[in-house]
Design a protein around this nucleic acid. Structure first.
Length: 105
DNA sequence: AACCTGACTCGCC
DNA sequence: AGGCGAGCCAGGT
């Protein structure tokens, strides 16, 4: 069981229609400073399709533009189709982050 | 085997 | 208020 595996498991627990921040996922793993590792784990994501990496956003709710499997626009579109509300074109409503929190812990 | 880097976050100037 | 450094893990060079 590597740290990466834990990241994947936590991310898989995020329900459809909700999102979580890197920090929240990291905290669920026991160390909030793992946020950077969380991002890296998704970067080398071995299973797109199984791991809902599009539901993970930055602390302010902004979606990552660094590497969005298929484009950042694609990520936003997937989230909207799941019922996630956006503050603007690239920021999700923070209320959706809080919703996923208890499910990972 | 050591060093560098990367989808982040927070605390201290 | 905006910039900078530190802490975390794994994989490639």
């Amino acid at each position: 069981m590597t740290t990466f595996d834990k990241v994947y498991e936590a991310v898989k627990l995020i329900p459809r229609g909700s999102v979580a921040t890197y920090g929240q996922v990291a905290e669920a793993l026991g160390n909030k400073r793992l946020s950077r590792v969380v991002g890296y784990a998704l970067h080398v994501n071995p299973r797109p399709g199984v791991i809902p990496c599009h539901r993970v956003v930055k602390r302010d709710g902004e979606v990552s533009s660094a590497f969005a499997f298929g484009g950042a626009n694609r990520q936003a579109e997937l989230l909207r189709s799941e019922g996630v509300a956006f503050r603007d074109g690239s920021h999700v409503d923070m209320a959706y982050c809080v919703r996923a929190l208890p499910l990972m812990r």
